[in-house]
Design a binder for these strands. Structure first.
Length: 474
RNA sequence: CGGGGAGUGGCGCAGCUUGGCAGCGCGCCUGCUUUGGGAGCAGGAGGCCGCGGGUUCAAAUCCCGCCUCCCCGACCA
């Protein structure tokens, strides 16, 4: 039996991750074993994001895991931001290394060292590169998928000839790749906006983010896209000659999403019965279950699976009659399989199956002759239904407030939305306004800034013209 | 790093106070009966009781030291 999510959400989360066979803890603190079923979901996620990234003209490449320590020191804020969580290789080959090698916490430094060699002319720009990799950040408090010491991600790195070009590319990734992927494939409605100075990536001039509300009303940052300005190009000497022959520093971006998306999937859609997967990222979209032993049942199940597969639907047969029907059903539910088709002797006699939708629990008899079609339709509806359930939750649990105290109160159950002017101007040195500091002290963070109509902030916008969304966050 | 808790078959735990054959539930294996929402019976396999030392005729249990893990707070994708 699962702990109900409303009783103890963190515990429920851990149980779902374990029982759905997504992942388990590795032997070194904070590491994670991603199990085959979990990895199959990740592969579907990866494939779609990879396709979208390539549509923007980005090419994949691969850079080393180990980074010379002095690379990290080249960009002041970057080192400061990352040094507390670095894992450093000091010994190898039985000897102490002359220069320690850092296991990449992110690859800005090593990639930009290459960029500096590759870029000479405005004709080399824009340079658009992505890599799928693992990175290591020695986290103080790990949680499977949400914050692990080693995680898998995609990190894009680009160089452009102008600030404007870099900005529009960063936003294109945010909207065309991340937001649309999350809405369409993960069925998670996300808010897109800009981070405050205090929440900005170490070394960035602007950080853009997608944030979603989880089942307990807390926020999760699901992806980010950064404008790096010329911080790294100056640190690594990424220069080019423009049309007029003058030397210029490139303008850059970096952006990423990680296996954290898996955690989002669990927390945004899961329910009392376990995981619920949107059909597009479900490794198994349909389980065809033989209810009990009877003549013709196994054959009917197999032929049904074949016809579903023939339509490109990911279907499996459940013929494990040595396990009771009830147990098998519970198992498919925990694993979040969107559609189940129950097939027993009664159904064979009636020329039907019982179709059960995981999103609503709804059961309905469907004639075998209508089958591949009805399943296809249901799979489409399930994605839409899950998206609107998540959207309704975010709508119901977002409160518009007029003071910071009310915002803190609202953040105990969901999101608070208020005029960003309340955050106060950045105080010299701190990078954080007085109002924002007050929120932070109460365990609430500003998740993003938007225009009042939900659009992304423009370069000239003042804090007073924007809306802040604040919440407790993972 | 601050505050709590725990280390005992694969997983979850009891046993420790008051030393005396290492147990229970789940899972696993075999057989039979079952199977339309977490099956039943019978038989069976599986242990460096976190590590090191000490006390004792005898230590999972008492004493000393060490290690690790988990949960709650400050950081992140």
């Amino acid at each position: 039996m699962l702990t109900p999510p409303e009783d103890d959400f963190p515990r429920w989360y851990q149980e779902v991750v374990a029982k759905a066979e997504l992942a388990e803890n590795g032997p070194v603190r904070g590491t994670m074993v991603i199990r085959p079923y979990g990895y199959a979901i990740w592969e579907l996620v990866q494939a779609d994001i990879d396709r979208r990234i390539k549509e923007l003209g980005v090419q994949n490449a691969y850079f080393p895991l180990l980074v010379p320590e002095h690379y990290l020191r080249r960009e002041a804020e970057h080192v400061e931001g990352f040094s507390p969580e670095l894992a450093v290789v000091t010994h190898a080959g039985g000897r102490e290394l002359e220069e320690p090698a850092v296991i990449r916490p992110t690859s800005e430094t090593i990639i930009n060292a290459s960029f500096a060699r590759w870029i000479h002319s405005y004709r080399d720009l824009p340079l658009l590169v992505n890599q799928w990799a693992n990175v290591v950040r020695w986290e103080l408090r790990p949680r499977l998928f949400l914050r692990t010491t080693e995680f898998l991600w995609q990190e894009g790195h680009t160089a452009h000839a102008s600030e404007q070009a870099a900005r529009s590319f960063a936003l294109e990734v945010l909207e065309q790749v991340y937001v649309s992927f999350m809405r369409e494939l993960l069925a998670i409605p996300v808010l897109a906006g800009q981070k405050t100075a205090g929440e900005r990536f170490a070394g960035a001039t602007a950080t853009w983010t997608c944030e979603a509300m989880m089942g307990d009303g807390k926020a999760l940052q699901m992806g980010t896209s950064h404008e790096l300005g010329q911080n790294f190009s100056r640190a690594f000497g990424i220069t080019y000659l423009d049309q007029s022959g003058s030397e210029r520093y490139a303008w850059q971006t970096s952006w990423g999403v990680s296996t954290r998306l898996m955690g989002a999937l669990v927390m945004a859609h899961g329910d009392r019965s376990g995981l619920r997967l949107p059909p597009k990222v479900a490794p198994i979209q349909v389980a065809v279950v033989a209810v009990r032993e009877a003549p013709g049942v196994a054959e009917a199940v197999d032929s049904l699976v074949r016809s579903l597969k023939g339509r490109g639907i990911r279907a499996v047969a459940d013929l494990s009659l040595e396990t009771s029907f009830g147990r098998r059903v519970v198992n498919w539910e925990i694993k979040g399989v969107p559609v189940r088709l129950d097939l027993g002797p009664r159904d064979i006699a009636a020329g039907q199956v019982i179709m059960v939708r995981r999103d609503t629990g709804e059961k309905m008899p469907v004639a075998i002759t209508e089958l591949p079609n009805r399943v296809e339709i249901a799979l489409g509806q399930i994605g839409d239904q899950m998206r609107s359930m998540a959207a309704a939750r975010m709508r119901d649990r977002t409160e518009t407030t007029s003071s910071l105290d009310d915002a803190i109160e609202a953040a105990s159950t969901g999101f608070a939305s208020f005029e960003a002017g309340l955050l106060g101007a950045d105080e010299a040195g701190s990078g954080t306004g007085r109002g924002e500091a007050k929120l932070n002290a109460a365990g609430v963070t500003v998740r993003l800034l938007q225009q009042p109509d939900g659009a992304l902030p423009e370069p000239g916008d003042k804090l007073e013209d924007l809306i802040a969304i604040a919440a407790r966050a993972y």
